[in-house]
């Protein structure tokens, strides 16, 4: 009998909480100047412009100590040929493509590297492939992504 009472009391309290919460929510919504419509009077905007999935990145100078830091992964975003001709010591080559996304394996490799920062350098053009790759990596969830201002040309100097 006691068990039945507990169940009934719990049920009653639950219903009470739901009813009071709903009443409070409806009252607040009713009072708000721009309350949410309870029944949609117009179609929702299904179509919205499509953003390129890019994140915020920070530029670093070519002589920034972050570039040579122990827990930094340095990425060369240029083409294979340019990388073959010259690259910064210890840099990892991930060629940037303006049309295709950075391969998922490369993103996973960087994410799982345990690095404190990812610094990307590119061709230094306008647009700079290093900056564009850094923005893409940041947009895909990597944190502390930087790019070298001026790209490979500035690094060589």
């Amino acid at each position: 009998m006691a068990g039945k009472d507990i169940i009934l009391t719990t049920l009653r309290d639950a219903v009470l909480v739901v009813v009071v919460s709903a009443a409070l929510a409806l009252t607040v919504n009713g009072v708000r100047e721009e309350g949410i419509e309870l029944v949609a009077s117009r179609a929702y905007e299904v179509f919205v412009p499509c953003p390129e999935p890019l994140g915020e990145v920070t530029p670093v100078a070519p002589d920034d100590p972050l570039i040579g830091a122990a827990r930094t992964v340095l990425v060369d975003a240029r083409g294979e040929e340019e990388y073959g001709q010259w690259h910064h010591t210890g840099s990892l080559h991930i060629g940037f493509d303006y049309l295709e996304p950075v391969p998922m394996e490369s993103v996973k490799k960087l994410a799982g590297s345990g690095a404190a920062a990812v610094v990307v350098y590119g061709d230094g053009d306008d647009p700079d492939s290093g900056r564009e790759m850094a923005r893409e990596l940041a947009g895909r969830g990597l944190r502390n992504v930087y790019y070298v201002e001026g790209g490979a040309g500035a690094l060589k100097k």
Partner: peptide
Amino acid sequence: IKSHTNSM
């Protein structure tokens, strides 16, 4: 847009 499948 790179995030669109078959965009290229």
